[in-house]
Design a protein around this nucleic acid. Structure first.
Ligand code: FES
Ligand code: FES
Lengths: 157, 157
DNA sequence: ATATAAAAAGACAGGATACTCTTTTTATAT
DNA sequence: ATATAAAAAGAGTATCCTGTCTTTTTATAT
């Protein structure tokens, strides 16, 4: 058995970058009042991610307008009201592209009913649910749940 | 956006090794009559995998008794009747371990209701379906479908 | 204007998966 | 017994994600 730690099946469901991106968005939503800015250091500590690594990710999210930032003293990251409508799917697409919609679980060039791999039919429904889930859930909905106090963001339990 | 090709979400659902393992098992089941042996070369060609790479994978599957092999002239790989009962879950466990049962999609140390990450509840049902799917589907069931002629194994369409 | 604080950007190191190449072992046929 | 064919095993390479470090840019406060 390979020692590689895997996700749903063999790999992580999300890339590490994508995991951190989702957690960071949720953390910022939770911590920031509208227009309050949070620093990279605070975010990194809050979600248990390497500081310089999460910095890169925040830059990417910022470039794609999923969050906003201001440089200089008292600067930092923040979300606008509109940003709370960002879905998990939006984040995943920014971090890893839209492969989710056409990737075959067995590695065929593309997933389609015309060229189905052996597990295509079995996976079809699951895939639909997965996509529906990440499209429906937004940062705002997670934020509400977090305030109920039972959810965790840090890697180490 | 990173150029990394991803699976369900960001990563491949299965590792490449696991994909090849599943395809190889299905291919062998399809090609071999009981006790007929198939060579590495034939398997590699049949599923579109690198020859020496699939060799390693077949060795691993063989060590774990998911398939059988004989060395020497006229040697090769084959499946016994019992081997047809191998489930996708069995293969995944051999190739990548049983992380599927306790990995958190957001990278927490473990997935549990006591320490839920923000997407835990949304993911719970999907995870159940995924696990159920790979546990129910066996090499034998795929083999029957393959013989209907519409399924594909090779990476390139 | 200057110092400062914070993000943005660039370059680099580590580790794991994916893949290749070579040698060894073993069973078969002659 | 010997040659041969095929899997088993070992060693090494490439690529990519992950993570670290340093420098640059920019906005703020004094
Ligand atoms: S073709 Fe493989 S999952 Fe659709
Ligand atoms: S705790 Fe994250 S998926 Fe269960």
């Amino acid at each position: 058995m390979r020692s590689y730690i895997c996700g749903i099946f063999s790999n992580d469901m999300f890339s590490k970058s994508c995991e951190y991106a989702i957690k960071a968005m949720i953390f910022i939503a939770q911590k920031s009042q509208p227009e309050t800015r949070i620093s990279i250091k605070e975010i990194a500590g809050g979600i248990g991610a390497p500081e310089h690594f999460i910095a890169k990710i925040l830059q990417e999210l910022s470039r794609k307008k999923l969050l906003h930032s201001i440089k200089g003293p008292n600067g930092g990251f923040y979300l606008t009201k509109a940003d709370y409508k960002t879905s998990l799917a939006d984040i995943v697409k920014v971090m890893d592209g839209d492969k989710i919609y056409n990737v075959c679980v067995l590695g065929l060039k593309s997933c389609s009913p015309k060229n189905p791999c052996p597990v295509h039919d079995e996976y079809k429904e699951i895939k639909k649910n997965l996509i529906s889930m990440i499209e429906k859930n937004t940062i705002g909905t997670f934020n509400q749940k977090l305030h109920s106090g039972k959810l965790h963001l840090k890697t180490r339990n």
